[in-house]
């Protein structure tokens, strides 16, 4: 009997493409890229079984730097594209990469409904509290008193709390990570992928160019002192009262992932292909 040879496991390095990142030296996103590749290797995935989908921003450049399938989409619309892909190809592991501008400003509405819908996706937001790519405008997570040439005196606006919003909207897994801890972040991403449903991982990823003070984050972050909970109300209370520097899984629920209703007269997303056939 001929047993087919087992393909050798793909190492983290094997998930890195030949394209060299063009991020600023010292940008937190370098480490996030290495956490992605380590998480994929840890889970024994193969590049041809993973799709990395993104919007626009420095953080959204990640798909090009991996050997997985990639889709560098439209600003703020990564979740819509990713949900469509996952429903059409449930066999793929779909990971979405975004930034605080991409995910919470222009893509804010998609974020709410992706949490609510609970499609089996992992949503990773590299939060640097600024629009890095467009040279330093304040984002929804920018502190109200952040004074800059583009926001003299600060915006005066209260910040968006993405983790609580994700919980309230129905995300099934909520975690906070720090780019300066690439191995810890890889573990969190791996756990997010393993958990069925919509998993949200917010990564504090310093923008050394427009927010150089974020270099101090490495002195400020700490592992969350309490274990993750499956009680959304308790998790929300904890998140609302912490200082935003607690790292770890903060909530893990058991909601069933969204499955498109497939019955008589209903079409599978893949059936739609025939309608577009020339």
């Amino acid at each position: 009997m001929n047993t087919p040879a087992l393909a050798a496991p793909v190492t983290a390095q094997g998930f890195k493409s030949d394209y060299k990142p063009i991020w600023c030296p010292g940008c937190g996103d370098y480490s996030v890229l290495s956490s992605f590749t380590k998480a994929f290797a840890k889970l024994g995935l193969r590049p041809e079984n993973v799709a990395v989908v993104s919007g626009i921003g420095c953080s959204s450049r990640i798909p090009a730097y991996t050997t997985c399938y990639g889709f560098h989409g439209v600003h703020g619309r990564s979740l819509a594209a990713a949900a469509g892909l996952k429903l059409a190809r449930p066999d793929l592991t779909v990971v979405v990469a975004s930034g605080d501008g991409d995910g919470y400003s222009i893509g804010g509405n998609h974020f709410l409904h992706a949490c609510r819908r609970n499609v089996d996706l992992t949503y990773v937001v590299m939060d640097n509290h600024v629009y890095g790519m467009t040279k330093g405008q304040p984002s929804p997570t920018t502190e109200p008193d952040w004074d800059s040439k583009l926001s003299p005196g600060g915006t005066g606006l209260r910040t968006f709390n993405p983790l609580v919003i994700a919980l309230a909207a129905g995300a099934n897994f909520v975690a906070r990570a720090f780019a300066g801890d690439p191995n810890g972040t890889a573990e969190l991403i791996a756990e997010a992928i393993r958990t069925p449903g919509f998993s949200f991982v917010e990564i504090l990823s310093p923008c050394v160019t427009f927010r150089p003070e974020q270099r101090e984050w490495k002195q400020m972050v700490r592992p969350a002192s309490v274990k993750s909970t499956d009680d959304a109300a308790r998790a929300a209370r904890r998140i609302m009262t912490d200082d935003g520097m607690n790292i770890g899984v903060l909530y893990k629920g058991e909601r069933m992932p969204y499955q498109p209703p497939i019955g008589k007269g209903r079409k599978r997303p893949s059936d739609l292909e025939t309608e577009f056939a020339l």
Binding site: G26, P182, G184, P206, R215, K218
Partner: peptide, 23 residues
């Protein structure tokens, strides 16, 4: 990839936030 340090990274791993493009 499975080695965990007591801090966030290994004791010989350089800190990326120390870089500058004109260094």
């Amino acid at each position: 990839a499975n080695v965990r340090w007591e801090g966030t990274e290994g004791p010989e791993t350089a800190d990326p936030t120390e870089l500058h493009y004109l260094m």
